[in-house]
Design a protein around this nucleic acid. Structure first.
Lengths: 104, 104
DNA sequence: TGCGGATATGTCAGTTCGGACATACACTGC
DNA sequence: GCAGTGTATGTCCGAACTGACATATCCGCA
């Protein structure tokens, strides 16, 4: 996915001056970003809480330390999928995940 | 991402007889699947509620009708990312998303 | 029966993502 | 100073994902 923001704005009719669509899309984009940030924050919190190093968590989810670092840094190459996987693997409960949502 | 389940089980040490890791991963896998299903269900519900056809929703999120169909069918080629995008684009509020989580 | 809108399924080429590796940086205790 | 542990950053290539298109199926409705 992940066409970049500029392309998305363009696609939304920015150039045609369609302000309504623009705002709409911008809002949706914002929601997604907020959600991702909330989950990222939850991952780090959960990992620390469970006293895991990035390397530990990486092993748990068959990933690598560098990727965990990227997750927590909000790197663009990390998908929501992976963030959620990390959150689950870090030992967060379903309730914790809900809490992450509520937090935003 | 989305190595298939068999590969994941293998990676978890199934062949080496590591039952603990196996159960662990299985549980995490289950959580992820449950989450995805809950969100998928929410997408369909939200789309219908807002009286949108799959084609409408596809246009809103710059995707295609066939992909929306795959989302709602829980097709393996669909990522959590896309499901959440669809959910947001369908007009679901942050609260609706939370509700989807709670539902599982 | 035939039309039209909505949804489902299969395929594919282009893009994005992911694990792995190398390497750098930060901090702590010795 | 330096060894050890934990984290950050950049790159690469194979795997996964995506939009688009073609086509099929379903379901009213005239």
């Amino acid at each position: 996915m992940k066409t970049n923001k500029l392309e998305r704005l363009k696609a939304a009719g920015w150039e045609a001056g369609n302000a309504e669509d623009f705002l709409q899309l911008s809002d949706e984009e914002a929601k997604l970003v907020a959600l991702k940030l909330a989950l990222i924050s939850a991952v780090k919190k959960s990992r620390i809480k469970h006293k895991l190093s990035q390397t530990d968590l990486a092993q748990r989810m068959k990933s690598s330390q560098s990727r965990i670092a990227k997750i927590e840094a909000g790197d663009a190459s990390v998908s929501l999928d992976l963030v959620v996987r990390a959150l689950i693997a870090s030992g967060a409960t379903t309730r914790d995940i809900q809490a992450a949502f509520t937090a935003q």
